[in-house]
Write a protein that binds this DNA or RNA. Structure first.
Lengths: 208, 208
DNA sequence: TGTACATCAGTGAACGCGCGTTCACTGATGTAC
DNA sequence: TGTACATCAGTGAACGCGCGTTCACTGATGTAC
């Protein structure tokens, strides 16, 4: 008889998963900069030393959370991809919008994924794989645009990187409330994103 | 008789400036995340409570440092602007490269300028002004490209924001050692930047 | 020019805080017999 | 099915750390007379 994975007894059941979700919840309440193992443990209703049975330190928990974030992003991108299967051009634009939406919807998770809380991503192969997996959806979309004749750029990867860079820049400048986006609303930011992606798309199309 | 602004006596002379430069030096040695008032004071050769005669708290010191950073960036962009006065198109490309170079050359200062160490930029008018001043150089460059007929986009600000976003995205993805740029060198990043800016330029030129 | 004094920049001890991490422990679970 | 025991997840007290900040102080400077 397996125990029910809830904290109604001395043993928890699935504390590792609970800690991951406690962190995600915390990230919706306060800044990614103020996350600590003690807060996460408290949020999960467990003593401050309990997490050490599952994670050697805070960073490895954050890595776990970041991996979850990349998986979530990947799923969202994939659902865009299949939703606009017949319209590669829309796939392109909507996936860019999806990325920006993701960043605006989960700003602090986004910072864990792309910020410097995790010192060196290359130390965590699983994390790197999750990043690549989410990026590869964008590559697929570019490839489909080429096949259907919308884009003739030969280098899929370069093109994908350019698009990724653009939406990443938008997300970060907006999240940082930088001066250029200081009085942008969610609505204007989406319009701006569409316009920029269109500009970039035309650039890719007509280059060389 | 004015005292010499050096720490050879009980009084310092110009501790405020010294603290700013101590912070800049620290930022070249260690992560922006580990900066503290105590470390800055130590670096300046002064007791940990001395900074409080000049700054109410750590954040206001960082604001000061960020302002310095934006001024430096502005000067670099202006020197590009005047260097290529006769070639607006080169002004465009080289100023983008200059931005990326600045970020790669002063990664931790760059993070202070654009990261979340300063909670709300809007609280500091001087900081906002310095940001706007550096951004306005880019606007000027776009305007000159329009005048000379290289670009026909009517909205200078939008165009400038698109370019800014692009180079900002490059800088941050590269600094974060994200997977897409994981094995890029400084040289390849510059080539990538040039290509992306060219793509964007063509997009702006042919749009609508 | 010399002396008294106000001003104020810098000192260093002290405070409380939250943090990561450790450690001997305790209580629940699952298994061998 | 029942009992003894190994295993291991979670506990809570304790540690040392660096931090921001305060406070009564001290020493240098510049000014009034």
């Amino acid at each position: 008889m397996k125990s029910i994975p809830f904290k109604d007894s001395y043993h928890h059941g699935d504390l590792k998963k609970a800690l991951r979700f406690a962190t995600l919840n915390l990230l919706q309440e306060e800044s990614y900069q103020s996350i600590s193992l003690r807060k996460v443990a408290k949020k999960a209703g467990v003593s401050q030393s309990a997490p050490y049975r599952h994670y050697p330190n805070l960073e490895s928990l954050l890595v776990d959370v970041a991996i979850y974030g990349f998986q979530l992003l990947r799923e969202k991108l994939q659902s865009i991809q299949s939703k606009f299967k017949k319209h590669p051009l829309l796939q392109f634009r909507e996936s860019g919008l999806c990325y920006v939406n993701f960043a605006l919807g989960h700003p602090d998770l986004f910072q864990i994924m792309y910020g410097n809380q995790i010192s060196n991503h290359a130390l965590y192969p699983e994390l790197t794989l999750a990043e690549e997996a989410s990026f590869s959806v964008l590559e697929d979309i570019i490839r489909e645009n080429q096949k259907s004749g919308n884009l003739n750029s030969s280098d899929v990867r370069k093109t994908a990187i350019a698009a990724w860079t653009m939406v990443h820049g938008i997300a970060l400048l907006f999240l940082g409330k930088q001066v250029v986006f200081q009085d942008s609303t969610d609505r204007t930011i989406k319009r701006t994103t569409k316009e920029m992606l269109e500009t970039l798309y035309i650039g890719i199309k007509y280059k060389k």
